[in-house]
Simulated scan of single mutants.
Amino acid sequence: MEPAQLDRTPFADLDRMPPDMFAMLVAALESMSRHPEIRRVRHTAWEALRPSPGQRLLDAGCGAGDVSRELATAVAPDGEVVALDFSAATLAAARARDTGDAIRYVTGDVCALDFDDESFDGVWCERVLQHVEDPDAAIGELVRVTRTGGRVCLLDTDWASLAFDGVDGTLAGSVIGHMHGRLTPRQLDMGRTLRRRLLDHGLEDVVATPVTCYFPDPDSAAVVLPMVNHDVPEGTWASPAGLRDEWFTQVDSAGERGDFLAVLTIWVVAGTV
């Protein structure tokens, strides 16, 4: 899994991150994985993928490996999970957290997978496609390596759905507009396009579920939404002077009053090859 940022730094650059910043990123990934709203999204995806004992599954864009470890438990005792990520440093972090399950860690490009056709019974790909240059090529590869009758499960964000309450609407619109302006179109609406993309690749039994994540306070939102997180470096905002400070003043005040709210939709889409 790859968390959203306010800038366009490609995740291929993770291996060039200073160690302290990379440690902060991994900690953020782990915090996000524990968040109840992300757990709810993943539960929806779990029901769509339907992992079972003996399967061979691919976690494409595995991040720190938390989903890989859960999948490995589901396919035990005779199954296997291949945890793939573009970043060698991220894979090293995932290996360091390995609990001895049947997981094979592989560095690779989701747009050019080094696996034979029909190598897997199912694929999990979470919040990766918004970050690749050619998401349809990546989906084609995920479909190619999945056996006939296997399931492909994609999870991705619809950043255009982001909304706030409890803060000045004009200011919130400025912050959201600034973020939107720094994202590519595919980053903005990837989640809502997944169903069409799977249908275009010929998958059947395609089920699309929008999961609206609800954040009732700034602390909860900050785990998932970088523009609510005080720890996100100011330099990554590259925003007009004073916007960040004014925003956080309002967010903090709304938190103290108890009327802060943020919502964001993450789509879960799965189909049968």
Score class of each variant (00 low, 15 high):
Leu203Lys: 05
Val268Pro: 00
Ser52Ala: 15
Ser174His: 10
Asp189Lys: 11
Gly173Val: 08
Gly169Cys: 05
Arg196Cys: 10
Asp134Arg: 14
Ser253Thr: 15
Val206Ile: 01
Pro36Tyr: 11
Asp20Ile: 11
Glu37Phe: 01
Asp245Phe: 07
Tyr105Glu: 04
Val268Phe: 01
Pro135Leu: 08
Gly191Lys: 10
Arg144Pro: 04
Pro51Leu: 10
Glu133Ile: 11
Ala88Leu: 12
Gly61Val: 05
Asp15Arg: 08
Phe22Pro: 03
Leu155Asn: 10
Phe86Ala: 12
Asp259Lys: 08
Trp124Glu: 00
Ser253Phe: 06
Asp165Trp: 06
Thr146Trp: 06
Ala163His: 12
Thr272Ser: 13
His180Ser: 11
Ile266Leu: 13
Arg34Met: 14
Leu25Gln: 10
Asp114Ser: 13
Asp66Gly: 08
Val41Cys: 05
His201Pro: 07
Ser119Glu: 06
Ala254Tyr: 04
Met227His: 13
Gly54Thr: 09
Arg34His: 14
Leu49Phe: 03
Gly202Ser: 05
Thr184Pro: 00
Leu142Lys: 06
Arg42Asp: 08
Ser161Gly: 05
Phe260Cys: 00
Glu246Tyr: 00
Pro185Leu: 06
Tyr105Ser: 03
Val223Thr: 14
Ala23Phe: 06
Glu234Gly: 12
Pro3Trp: 00
Arg8His: 07
Leu58Trp: 05
Leu57Arg: 06
Met17His: 10
Glu70Pro: 01
Phe260Glu: 00
His178Trp: 13
Leu49Val: 01
Asp168Val: 03
Phe248Cys: 09
Gly79Pro: 07
Asp15Gln: 09
Cys125Gln: 03
Asp158Trp: 07
Ala23Ser: 15
Glu126Trp: 00
Asp114Ala: 14
Ile176Met: 07
Met179Gly: 04
Leu261Arg: 15
Arg196Asn: 14
Asp189Val: 15
Met1Glu: 03
Asp15Glu: 05
Val152Tyr: 03
Arg186Cys: 03
Gly166Ser: 09
Val81Ile: 15
Leu198Ala: 07
Asp156Val: 08
Arg50Met: 10
Ala12Met: 02
Asp136Leu: 13
Leu129Arg: 07
Val223Phe: 02
Pro77Tyr: 08
Arg69Ser: 11
Ala89Glu: 14
Asp121Trp: 01
Leu264Tyr: 11
Ser52Gly: 08
Arg8Cys: 01
Leu71Asp: 05
Arg69Lys: 13
Glu70Lys: 13
Thr73Phe: 11
Gly108Cys: 06
Arg197Asp: 12
Ser87Phe: 09
Ala74Tyr: 10
Tyr214Phe: 14
Arg56Asp: 03
Trp124Pro: 00
Met1Leu: 05
Gly122Met: 04
Asp101Glu: 15
Leu264Asp: 04
Leu194Thr: 11
Arg147Glu: 12
Gly191Arg: 12
Asp7Met: 01
Thr170Asp: 15
Cys111Asp: 12
Leu91Cys: 10
